[in-house]
Amino acid sequence: MGEAGRELPGLARRLVRATTADEAAAWLKELNDRHGRHDDHLKERTVAKQNPMHARGRKWWRTHERLRRAYFRLVRPNRAGVLFAFRDPAVLKGGGPLPSTTNQLEGGVNAVAKRALDHHRGSSEEHMRRCREWAVYMLAERPGPMALVTPEHWRTRKGKPAGNDGPMPGTMTAVQEPTDGVDAYESGFGIRKGWAGRST
């Protein structure tokens, strides 16, 4: 890995500690200095003759591809202007400081939406979308689900009776099939082998 690889994780950890514009500028300077020191190292190439086992049809490849990829994962967001978006005055609009990571979003919002989808496996894609929207809506500060109910929802509708809700016809096992495009595989239903703790 070398010195270049050892420096990068520490630099990445210091990224979230940059809470002011001056600290962000200092961090970017450190990133550029690091690149200047290790540029030749990152540009090294390996040709297929040197390592034919890893050629996979290529004539050459970057020797330190993973290290280059990690470096450019820090450079590209900065070039796009989103690396320090949490410090951007246009984003803050006079408000308080924003968190520098999305950890609160991942644990507070995304986890709830994923759990709701997990509890409704087998639903159609439209139903899953509505389920996710509802889960996120209920995380609002003051959700008002009854405000979404209109008088039309309370009216009884005269129409055809509900169809047969039994198993899907034409299936060999007469088991209800999941909706198209939904992976309803349950890992515990496969064929099991072994002794399962029984003694001989």
Rank of each mutant, 00 (worst) to 15 (best):
G170Q: 02
T63W: 11
F84Q: 11
A85Q: 07
W27Y: 03
S123E: 12
V175G: 03
A184G: 10
M168W: 05
L92A: 08
H54D: 05
P99M: 08
T200S: 10
T20H: 03
R58G: 12
G197A: 01
F86D: 00
H54I: 03
G95E: 07
P169D: 02
T63F: 10
L31D: 01
D33A: 02
S123V: 11
G163H: 14
L98S: 00
G122M: 13
T171Y: 06
W60V: 06
R14Q: 12
F86N: 01
K160C: 08
P169N: 02
F84I: 08
Q176V: 01
D39Y: 07
A26S: 12
N103C: 11
W61T: 00
G5A: 05
L105G: 07
R76L: 09
M146I: 09
Y185L: 15
W134I: 14
S124Y: 05
A70F: 04
M146R: 10
E126Q: 14
M168H: 08
A55R: 00
R34V: 00
T46Q: 07
N51S: 05
R121T: 06
T171N: 06
R68D: 05
W61Q: 02
P99S: 08
G36P: 00
C131A: 14
G122Y: 12
L42H: 00
F189T: 08
F84C: 09
A90W: 00
G166C: 09
E23V: 01
A196R: 05
A196D: 05
R157I: 11
L74D: 00
W195V: 08
W61P: 05
E3A: 04
E133N: 10
I191E: 06
D180G: 03
T102D: 14
R157F: 02
A12S: 02
M1C: 10
K59R: 14
K160S: 12
L42T: 00
A147F: 13
E7R: 09
V136S: 09
R142D: 08
A26R: 08
A147T: 13
R79A: 11
E126Y: 12
A196K: 06
K49E: 15
D165N: 14
G95K: 05
T102R: 12
G197E: 01
M172Y: 12
G2F: 03
E30F: 10
R45K: 15
M1N: 10
M146V: 08
N164W: 12
R142C: 07
V112G: 07
A48T: 01
M168R: 06
H127D: 14
V175Q: 11
L15I: 04
N51Y: 06
R157C: 07
V112K: 15
R37C: 01
A140K: 06
T150F: 11
V149N: 07
G94Y: 05
T19S: 05
H54K: 07
F86T: 00
L8W: 03
R76G: 01
R132S: 15
H127F: 11
A111C: 11
H35G: 09
K193M: 10
E7L: 07
P97K: 07
K49N: 13
D183N: 05
A113P: 02
T101N: 08
A147N: 15
E152F: 05
R45Y: 11
